[in-house]
Simulated assay, not measured.
Amino acid sequence: MDREFKKIVLDNSDVIVQKWIDEIDTLKGFNYSDSVSEELLESTNREFVNIIFSSIKNEGDTKQLKEFSEKLINLGWKVSYITDGLQVFRRVTIDFILQQSDQIDTSYISELLHSVDEWVEPLIRQLVNEFSGNWENILSLQRVALQELSAPLIPVMDNITIMPLVGTIDTERAKLIMENLLEGVTQHNSEVVLIDITGVPVVDTMVAHHIIQAAEAVGLVGATCILVGIRPEIAQTIVNLGIDLGKFPTKSSLRKGFIKALGLTDRKIIRTEENNATIEQMIESLGGE
C-alpha cells in the first residue's frame, strides 16, 4: 500500500506542491526570518518542497538536506520553518490522497497516516539534525574568531609585543589572555610585553588580579610586562582598592610604555635634523650612538 500512496503523491506532485505553497504562505506572519523578500521566500519554498519530494523518491540521499540546512542558516532563518513546512506537507498530502480515494475505511486511513509519517518523520529528524549541527559549527567558528580578536598579541618590533585590551575582562577572557600571552611570548621571542588597558572601562579587584597573574606568568617565561593606559580614574581606583602593581612597570600611555620597552631591550629613540625635519630613528644598542 505504501507504494500505492507514493505513486499517487509523485504522479500528482504539481498539485500537491501548489497546495503546499498556498498553505505555507499563510505562515508568513510567524516571521521565519527578520527580513526576507517575496522572491527569496518563494524560491526557498520551491526548493524546500522539491527537496521533500526528492527525499521521498530517493531515500537515503542526505546531500540536498545538508546543503539546504546550511542555506537556511546563512539566511538567518529559524528551525521552525523546517518543522512547520513538513507538518504542512503531511496535512496537505493526507488530505489529497483521501480526496482521491473512492473507498475509505479505518484500516485505509491508518495505513495512510503511517506511510506519510514514515516519509515525514525521518525528514524532520535529518533536517533538524543538519540544521543544529551546522549552527553549532558556525557558532564554534565564530567563538574562536571572537576569542582571537578579544586578546591579540601584536609584535611591533624585535623582542617587543603589545596586547591591546578592549572591553570587560571576565574570568573566561582572563584565561584566554593568559594563554595568548604565554604562547605569544614564546612564539615571538618577546623580551617585553606591553598590556594596554586604555580600552578597559572598569578595573576592579578581579580585573587587577587577573592582570597581575598574567604579568607574573610572563615573568616566569623570562619576559617583562609593562602595564600601559592607566588613566587617572583607574589609578585612583587601584589606590583606593589597595592593589599593589609595583611588581612591574606601569605607564600612563602606550607611547611612554614603548619608550620604556626600548630601554629594557637596550635601545632608545634619538632625534636627527635633516632639512629642518625631525626624524626618529631606532638605534639597536646604546653603544651604537
Rank of each mutant, 00 (worst) to 15 (best):
D2A: 13
R3Q: 13
V15G: 02
V15I: 15
K19I: 02
I21P: 02
F30C: 03
S37M: 07
L40D: 13
E42A: 12
E47V: 05
I51H: 08
I51T: 09
F53V: 00
S55I: 05
S55D: 06
I56M: 14
N58T: 11
E59D: 09
L65H: 11
L65Y: 02
E70H: 14
K71G: 00
I73H: 13
L75E: 12
L75G: 05
S80A: 11
S80C: 01
Q87Y: 06
R90Q: 12
R90T: 07
R90F: 10
R90L: 11
D95F: 09
I97K: 10
I104H: 10
T106N: 06
S110I: 06
L112C: 04
H114C: 00
S115C: 13
V120P: 06
W135Y: 14
L141Q: 13
V144H: 09
Q147A: 08
E148K: 15
P155K: 11
P155D: 04
L165V: 03
E179Q: 15
E179Y: 10
E183W: 01
G184F: 08
T186F: 07
Q187K: 15
S190N: 11
G199L: 08
P201C: 10
M206D: 04
M206P: 00
V207R: 01
A208R: 00
Q213C: 00
V221G: 04
T224F: 05
L227M: 08
I230F: 06
P232K: 03
I234L: 07
A235N: 03
G242D: 07
G242H: 10
L245S: 01
P249M: 02
S252H: 09
G257Q: 06
I259N: 12
G263Q: 13
T265H: 04
T265R: 06
K268Y: 15
R271Q: 08
T272G: 01
T272E: 13
E273S: 11
N276D: 14
I279G: 00
E284L: 13
G288H: 13
